[in-house]
Design a protein around this nucleic acid. Structure first.
Lengths: 90, 90
DNA sequence: CAGCATCCCCGATGATACTG
DNA sequence: CAGTATCATCGGGGATGCTG
């Protein structure tokens, strides 16, 4: 989800911008997720040494390769999750 | 993963066949997962009343729509996970 | 064979508070 | 602003044993 938000931005996003883009995700989880994505080489992190500091995230080339498959899943969910929920309910 | 195994079989699979196809998944989790997939309308279940009983699973039409996006993810993983692991290690 | 029931534990996650 | 640290919870999931 963070990957898709960064892809949609088509460039860099700051931490707080990501938080806004991903409502319902706690700061802790977003922080952990970004650290993991960075460790895995999918996202790169750039710190702007101002006051207050600004931290910018962007997809790496490797991270960008993940975007199409993730989009496929999200599109499936948007199209079919209503049917799934209907079946699960009834 | 169960969905992809069923798709690969292009028909029905019995419980034990699914277990074999998905090494590393406990019986409990496979059972829970299949029940959830059935509840969600992605998988259908057919009980052959023999002794011992045989239970067959197959994808529904809705379940089949999920196959292409899942294949996309799996293909990404096969291609790029080695790079991810290398980055995470080094 | 295909599960369900039970026990148990650990790790993921939230809430809250603190920091450079 | 962009985190880290600490505490508490709670549920996912393994191990095991039983059953129609």
């Amino acid at each position: 989800m963070a990957v898709l938000s960064l892809a949609a931005a088509d460039g860099e996003l700051r931490f707080t911008e990501l938080r806004r883009a991903m409502a319902g995700v706690s700061q802790k989880m977003l922080s952990q997720t970004l650290k993991a994505l960075e460790r895995d080489g999918l996202v790169s992190r750039r710190v702007e040494a101002s006051n207050p500091p600004r931290v910018h995230y962007r997809l790496t080339e490797l991270g960008a390769t993940l975007v199409p498959p993730l989009r496929g899943l999200r599109e499936w969910a948007e199209r079919y999750m209503p049917l799934v929920q209907e079946h699960a309910a009834g």
